[in-house]
C-alpha cells in the first residue's frame, strides 16, 4: 500500500502555496496530488517521495496532516484501461471513497490512486485478479 498525506486547508488565497513552499524547501518531491474542496475548506491529498518526513515538517509548521493508506494501480494508458479495473472493483463490491489519476513516468502506463472502504480486502482481490498494485518503491 502507498502512504498518502492529507492536509486540511481553508478555502482562501495562498494556502496551497504555503504547503508547496515548505515541501520545496525540504526538497520533497510531489508525485501526485488532488484537491477536494467544499465552499469553506479543502483537503489536499499528496503522494510524495518521503511521506514521513513531509508529515513531520508540515505538522511542525502547524498544519493538520494525516497519513492514510491508499492503493496505487498501474493500468495501460489506452481507452478502456481504467474501465477494466473499475469493472473488477464493481463486481467484487468494493466501494470507492475517492480516486485520482496521473500518468506514470518512464514510459509506463497510467496510475490511479484509490481509497476504498475495506483496504485489506481490496488489496487481496486486486492481486488475485492479476491487477498490478504498486509498492512505494515502484512509484
Amino acid at each position: 500500500m502507498l502512504k498518502q498525506l492529507s492536509v486540511f486547508l481553508e478555502n482562501k488565497t495562498g494556502r496551497l502555496t504555503a504547503v508547496t513552499e515548505i515541501l520545496a524547501e525540504y526538497n520533497i518531491n510531489i508525485r501526485a496530488l488532488s484537491l477536494a474542496d467544499t465552499s469553506d475548506f479543502g483537503i489536499l491529498r499528496l503522494i510524495v517521495n518521503e511521506p514521513k518526513k513531509a508529515y513531520e515538517i508540515l505538522k511542525k509548521d502547524g498544519f493538520t496532516v494525516r497519513i492514510t493508506d491508499v492503493i496505487g494501480v498501474e493500468m495501460p494508458d489506452r481507452p478502456g484501461g481504467l474501465n477494466g479495473v473499475l469493472q473488477v472493483m464493481k463486481s467484487e463490491g468494493i466501494n470507492i471513497e475517492y480516486l485520482y489519476a496521473f500518468l506514470g513516468t518512464n514510459g509506463r502506463g497510467a496510475v490511479v490512486i484509490f481509497r476504498v472502504e475495506n483496504m485489506e480486502k481490496a488489496m487481496e482481490i486486486l492481486q488475485e485478479k492479476g491487477i498490478q498494485v504498486l509498492s512505494p518503491a515502484e512509484l
Binding site: 498518502q4 492529507s6 486540511f8 477536494a36 467544499t38 475548506f41 483537503i43 491529498r45 505538522k59 493538520t64 496532516v65 494525516r66 492514510t68 471513497e97 475517492y98 481509497r115
Partner: peptide, 14 residues
C-alpha cells in the same frame, strides 16, 4: 481542525 478529528474524506468533515 485538530489531528484527532481530521479525516481525509470530505464527507466525514462535513
Amino acid at each position: 481542525v485538530s489531528e484527532n478529528v481530521f479525516s481525509d474524506e470530505v464527507r466525514k468533515l462535513e
